[in-house]
Amino acid sequence: MRAEPPAWAPGPAQAAALLEEAVDLLVLHRDFAAAVERCEAGCDSLGPGPGHQSFAEVKCSLCVVGIQALAEMNRWREVLSWVLQYYHVPEHLPPKVLELCILLYSKVREPQVMLEVGGSWLGSQANQSLPEFGSLLELYLAQVLLPLGRFGAAEELVRGCPALDSERRLRLLGTIGDSRASWARRDEETRPGAEEQQDPAAETLLGVLSQKLLTMLTLLRRTLRSMSNHFYLLPYKKMLLATFLLYLVVVRLDPASPTSLPFIYKLVQLFRQAWAAVLSPVHRPPIGD
């Protein structure tokens, strides 16, 4: 009597056919969207749940092809959510799928996407017995935790992992220490660089202010020198008023500013009126015979 095939046979058989189509579309035809559709149809045909070993292998292969097709279309942001819709929780991800996701998000410089997912997978006791656990732990440290500067979390993960032997634990702790020291050196090298970038700007600003002040003082000195031969004729209060107006025009206002021009003109007119008043014939000394 012919034995009946297992109940899981039709699902994997259909999924395997879809997997073959997806591979052809990905590699030969470069039709990435169609390849993703075949992968989705294959995963849907397998249904939820862990199922038989052949179920897991076909499903993992479908997800690997789908991840590559999504990456080829520059839709890498959808990869993690796309995978989790078939595995539901990070702890159930196959090692190959987790490895591919870590490498993908590290390559696009978004390692923080895999921070919680990788930590949940590595924290599962069921996954710690897998032969790929050690290599995935090192990959997670090198591509996720250390580039993000999570040195404390990395040390805690290594020290609290019972699946690591003492030699491998010491080696990983040494790698974490070296990365921490390298990170500190980069900070020290970057900090003086920022200060050096600020110094030329400050020097330029001080140079401009010094040149401007020197120009103003030179103009004031020339003006006072040209008026020095008339100062003995001025009463004290009127000379003080003229000097104050000159100070406002030359020192307190910026002649290069367009908004100051109307006000400067008014001050110049007031200065001329005051100057005409103090030099009027009434205050001029009598001319001797």
Rank of each mutant, 00 (worst) to 15 (best):
M1P: 01
A3P: 00
P5K: 12
P5I: 07
A7P: 01
W8Y: 10
W8T: 13
A9Q: 13
G11K: 01
P12M: 10
A15D: 06
L18N: 08
D24G: 10
L26D: 00
L26C: 02
V27G: 07
V27Y: 05
H29E: 05
R30M: 05
A34Y: 04
A34F: 02
V36G: 01
V36M: 01
E37P: 00
E37V: 15
G49Y: 00
F55T: 15
E57Q: 09
K59E: 00
S61N: 05
C63A: 07
G66I: 11
I67C: 08
I67N: 04
A69V: 12
A69F: 03
A71M: 02
R75G: 04
R75E: 05
S81F: 02
V89F: 06
P90K: 08
E99P: 00
L100F: 01
L100A: 07
I102W: 00
L103R: 15
L104C: 03
S106G: 10
S106H: 09
P111M: 04
V113G: 00
V117G: 08
V117E: 08
G118R: 10
G118Y: 05
G118D: 05
G118S: 10
S120I: 14
S120R: 14
L122E: 03
Q125S: 14
A126C: 03
N127S: 04
L130M: 09
G134S: 12
S135E: 07
L141R: 11
L141H: 09
A142K: 14
Q143N: 08
R150M: 08
R150K: 15
F151N: 03
G152L: 07
E156A: 15
L157R: 10
C161Q: 04
P162M: 05
A163H: 05
L164N: 02
L164D: 00
D165L: 12
S166N: 06
R169N: 02
R171H: 07
L172M: 06
L173F: 06
G174V: 09
D178G: 11
A184I: 10
T190I: 04
R191L: 02
D199G: 06
T204W: 04
T204V: 06
S210G: 10
L213I: 14
T215D: 01
M216K: 15
M216V: 15
L224T: 15
L224I: 14
S226E: 06
S228T: 11
F231C: 11
L233T: 14
L233V: 15
L234M: 14
Y236I: 14
L240E: 05
L240S: 08
T243D: 00
R252N: 05
D254Q: 07
S257T: 11
T259H: 08
F263G: 11
I264E: 03
Y265M: 10
F271Y: 11
R272Q: 09
Q273F: 02
A274K: 03
W275L: 04
V278T: 11
L279C: 03
S280F: 01
V282S: 07
R284M: 03
R284F: 00
P285N: 06
I287K: 12
G288W: 04
G288S: 13
